[in-house]
Amino acid sequence: MKFFFSVIWAVIEKDLRVELRTRESLLVMLVFALLVLTLFSFAFGPGLGGGEAPIQAGILWVAFLFSSVIGMSRSMGIERESNGFSAMRLTPADPSALFFGKMISIFILIAVMEVVGFMALAVFYRAKVWENLGALALVAFAATIGISAVGTLFAAMTARTRIRDVLLPVVLFPLLVPVLIAAVKATVAALDGAGWADMGDWIKMLGAYDLIFIAASAVTFEYILEE
């Protein structure tokens, strides 16, 4: 068991070190998320802002999904280019430990991007982020776990196909529909300061999704690593 956790930590540490040295993924993710937030403002017109929680939440999560896909495919692209998958297979580590390592490091990337995204939402769209910080953090946490669990599995998969990154959103987005719906609905409730009664069911749904797909992805990850 101790070995299991040390493998997880080793993978996370390696990924974070690579990120700190190159600063490749996070920068692109941040810029991309800000860009999507800005583009929506142009698409909907300059009058947007204040009291439109459904639109704000929708914009936010679409931006987060797009930006997450970039982060995931970059993270797995690094593994492909440096033959990381082969190296992982050579270690005596449990494939699910490798999965959790990659998943958590991807989760950290997405979470950092989301913090900046929420700040941008507060500034650009005058969303009530500060007032409802706790509830929003809970929603973002539950949704991001689901996104990074399924995303890690399929990013590892599509990184090894012929057209690589292009395929990832096509495979991933239909599977993430429940996360998007629940995250948007819960974010709307949180932005309105509605409390647990209105967002509880959606948080529970996100929790159920997270548990099911962490289990399913951790079990099937070994079939992706094989050669």
Binding site: L153, M157, R160, V171, P174, L175, P178, Y223, I224
Partner: peptide
């Protein structure tokens, strides 16, 4: 192997999609 994984995850996902 890859498509089998997608076939399994996709099938698990459909009821959750329906519920949501």
């Amino acid at each position: 192997r890859f498509s089998a994984v997608l076939g399994i995850i996709g099938f698990i996902d459909v009821p959750i999609v329906h519920m949501s």
